[in-house]
Design a protein around this nucleic acid. Structure first.
Lengths: 216, 216
DNA sequence: CTCAAAATGTTGCATTTGCAACATATATAT
DNA sequence: ATATATATGTTGCAAATGCAACATTTTGAG
């Protein structure tokens, strides 16, 4: 098991990490692409950590509407208590997109101090703390985007963020179709707006390559 | 100083909490209503904990547009690293709504183990962990709401959540005007939609009292 | 109480958007 | 290579929404 690339175990040696697993009641499971990793429809207080592969969290409401809530890859953590609420009682599942391996930990085992008071426990809590903080950042960024009134404003705000990080010319970190889902706009309507933005001289676009022409 | 009602110090006696303050480089400051509690326009890695009173986090963008991002009252925590990103470089400030007292802690002091390894440090980290988890819940709930396409769907989803918690008849936890801001809809357009929903027999509304008639 | 400020409710209108129905291009599997 | 699935781009149209302008009510300060 390779812990070195998992942020959750940063600062903890592989041997120590292995040793700690018993404190957390950790279990490892492998999944085939397409299979169900877990189901949060009932109450779920497990935390999952992606050790390898990719998975998606999918919500299905009573009308059968399907929504992709989050995407997970190496090192990402997920769990009901961590990043979503299911007040509406919808079906929420995590499904493997590729073959993957997942480590499960009891949420309670993380927040409670273990009886043996193993020395790395608090380090791991700190690491998880940082991961959640990172998640709240991405959530609040998305809220900022969604709070814009028009599709154009959403796109310009999002492009502005990317430009801050990568310069005025950058590649979209996702497909155009996924971008539409991310900003909660109709894909065809968004494509139309992108065309208009090019016509209006705000951006230039070639496949996923975007050049932001307006100063932000 | 009364720590008993602050979730962050749950499970830690008042005396112990006082004693721990030095580990965290904690400072206490009082603010008059209307005054600026802190400015996150630059980089800010302080975490604030509301000890008493109320405050709001306000974002002002380059066009002078003002947006209320979050409301804080007793026990709430805030900080750049905790729940917002400022990639757009906007001005982000916390302003006191009433006279209030705030405790500031260095973020780094929380995630690092203190040299003295005081015994309540990890308990406090766990508590803060829980607070952030609660915040991610409310953030992701809001994303769920904002991801609905129409104002009616947003309202029905939100009302459904409230109904799950309080039964099919409940009071809105905020003013109608604030509700419009919360779901990112134009106030007058939202009011119009609420009227239509009543006409269509989905809800009954009297001031902030709502009765959800459709089974959810 | 009195007055001003904030909240609420209504409506016309122009803009934006979702939706459906396409055509085409690209990626992936066999 | 070939076929199939997925991604992308376009457009007409009806529905939803923001916006402005206004009347009315409620709240809060003095």
């Amino acid at each position: 098991m390779d812990f070195s690339k998992i942020d959750l175990f940063e600062g903890i040696s592989g041997e120590d990490a292995e040793r700690m697993m018993s404190c957390f009641g950790a279990s490892f499971r492998k999944f085939r692409a397409g299979s169900e990793v877990c189901d949060y429809s009932g109450s779920g207080d497990d935390v999952g950590i992606m050790m390898s592969g990719d998975a998606v969290m999918i919500r299905t409401d009573e009308d059968g509407e399907i929504a992709v809530m989050e995407l997970f890859s190496d090192g990402d953590i997920f769990g009901e208590v961590l990043a979503f609420s299911n007040d509406a009682g919808d079906s929420v599942k995590v499904v493997a997109e590729s073959d993957c391996e997942v480590m499960f930990i009891k949420y309670a085992a993380i927040t409670k101090r273990c009886e043996r008071a193993c020395e790395h426990h608090s380090r791991l809590v700190s690491n998880m703390f940082g991961l959640i903080a990172k998640k709240t950042l991405s959530l609040s960024r998305r809220i900022e985007i969604l709070s814009k009134k028009t599709t154009r404003e959403k796109l310009m705000y999002y492009f502005g963020i990317l430009a801050k990080n990568y310069g005025s010319e950058f590649d979209l970190p996702m497909s155009v179709t996924r971008l539409a889902a991310y900003i909660c706009a109709d894909r065809s309507a968004m494509t139309r707006e992108l065309s208009r933005m090019q016509a209006d001289g705000l951006i230039e676009m070639e496949k996923r390559r975007v050049r932001l022409k307006k100063a932000v």
